[in-house]
Design a protein around this nucleic acid. Structure first.
Length: 475
DNA sequence: TGAAATGTTGGGGCG
DNA sequence: ACGCCCCAACATTTC
């Protein structure tokens, strides 16, 4: 019996997996292989936390495969060479893989396809990045019309996830490198690796009497609540299929008891469509990874102050909401979406630091770090992207804090120095009178930093800088 | 998926 | 009762 290869990349799952389905349907033995590609593992954008999550996820996938009579094979080296070697060793005829349309993956797959019979089945997104087009045949550059066209094109019936194959027949005795050892996951890690944990998380968010998805419209921006799905790392590695997530949103909408619940499900589905949108943007404009989408903002004279940048990275800006969020990122590998916008606005607009610096740090720290979504988010905040926030839309960190962490619960969780801060000053500790600072043992400027910049000044400076840049470009 | 500045309105205090 | 002022609340414009 000859065999085929299931080349696993960003689809670490057995459920609803087109590539795996195609491999199994070939009626030949299936070799599940993950290749440790040095270009990805050693890249500038690699991240210890994300790789740790990947290694643990591979271990879990290997166990899940074991339960179905198969086993995960790990190989090293450039993918084309590693695959060629494996095919020769095992007399494998075909390679099935899920399409990944990020720039590096496209190049890699094109190279493999030149030498080997690579069949791409399914993709990391629901929609092909060239499927949703304007009537003139060009891709959308604005979210809302994209979203409407996406919904007109893609109907829930097609999202029904297909179950995992009951059995996967694989040849025995194939050489495998060991799965890299995952660092011990922190006990308070948000994310248990693997497909089973991913589907449990999705179910907890969307199914039941009063699931959080019904309250998503009001809850999604609250950093002090657990009102979001927290599935981004699972989508990042395909431990969960995007179709299954969309299907869950549809099911929740069907069974919602009231308008609020239906709106919650609809709004959450829209977030999945943001992901689709940014995947399509990156596919159609791969250059956005390195430069502003909008030409008029390609030459902003960034300050790029090293001390400011370091303070931002460490969570020592003196703005509690910014610092709490940055510490959440570096300690947990995840950040609430509202917090991402706040810290991004602070870096780019208040500190006038190049959004690409922020993009890079996020890629190094986020377990869910994905080039398309990360770039989309940064260019949105910086006002430089497709359908971006206008340049004069500048977040006030204090107002955002009061609005979306009203009791300062999120702040206190991540900034122990502020644990004794009176409620009234939790968003603005620098306003606490100095005698009171001594009393509670939190001297601003010593135990917790004074604000590294005054927001209203920074706002004016940012408006001025952006306006000059725009006017000078003649746009 | 913003916030500040500016404009408008209407109720209440007061001479 | 009336006009005037103040200012909060809300709306609109501007960045």
């Amino acid at each position: 019996m000859s065999s085929v290869i299931w080349w696993i990349r960003r689809d670490l799952r057995l459920n609803d997996n087109s590539a795996l389905q195609a491999a199994v349907a070939s009626d030949q033995a299936v070799i599940p292989v993950f290749i440790l590609d040095p270009k990805l593992i050693n890249s500038q954008n690699a991240s210890e936390k994300r790789l740790g999550f990947l290694w643990a996820g591979l271990d879990q996938l290997n166990q899940d495969l074991g339960a179905r009579g198969s086993r995960l094979i790990i190989r090293n080296g450039p993918p084309a060479a590693a695959l060629k070697k494996l095919m020769l060793e095992e007399d494998a005829k075909l390679i099935f893989a899920e399409a990944d349309y990020s720039p590096y993956a496209r190049k890699r797959d094109a190279d493999v396809a030149l030498q080997l019979p690579l069949h791409l089945e399914g993709r990391t997104s629901i929609s092909h990045p060239e499927a949703v087009l304007k009537s003139n045949g060009k891709p959308y550059a604005v979210y809302s019309p994209y979203m409407r066209a996406w919904k007109a094109l893609h109907k829930p019936e097609e999202w029904l996830p297909r179950p995992a194959p009951a059995q996967i027949h694989s040849p025995k005795g194939i050489h495998s490198e060991p799965i890299p050892l995952a660092p011990i996951m922190m006990p308070d890690s948000y994310f248990k690796p693997g497909e089973v944990a991913a589907r449990e998380r999705l179910a907890a968010f969307t199914i039941g009497l009063e699931p959080e998805i019904y309250h998503y419209v009001e809850g999604r921006n609250r950093m002090d609540l657990n009102a979001t799905a927290m599935i981004s790392p699972y989508l990042r590695f395909g431990m969960l299929s995007a179709r299954e997530a969309a299907w869950a949103a549809f099911q929740a909408q069907q069974s919602a008891p009231d308008t609020q619940g239906r709106k919650g499900a609809e709004t959450w589905l829209n977030e999945l469509i943001w992901r689709e949108f940014y995947i399509s943007i990156l596919y159609n404009h791969p250059e956005v990874l390195g430069q502003s989408f909008r030409p008029e903002f390609r030459d902003i004279p960034w300050r790029n102050d090293a001390d400011d940048y370091a303070a931002w990275c460490k969570g020592c800006t003196g703005y509690p909401i910014v610092d709490a969020a940055m510490r959440q990122l570096t300690q947990s590998g995840w950040m609430h979406n509202r917090a991402r916008m706040i810290v991004a606005s602070f870096l780019v607009k208040d500190l006038l630091i190049d959004w690409r610096w922020g993009q890079r740090l996020f890629m190094q720290q986020l377990i869910d770090g994905d080039p398309a979504a990360n770039n989309g988010g940064w260019q949105w905040t910086a006002g430089t992207g497709t359908d971006a926030a206008p340049y004069f839309r500048i977040f006030n960190p204090t107002l955002q804090s009061k609005k979306y962490d009203p009791q300062g619960i999120f702040i206190r969780k991540w900034i122990p120095e502020l644990s004794q801060m009176p409620q009234k000053y939790i968003h603005t500790p620098w306003e606490l009178p100095s005698d009171k600072q001594s009393e509670i043992g939190c001297i601003i400027g010593k135990d917790y930093p004074a604000p590294i910049i005054e927001h209203s000044f920074a706002r004016q400076r940012s408006l001025h800088t952006y306006k000059l840049s725009k006017d000078f470009s003649g746009q």
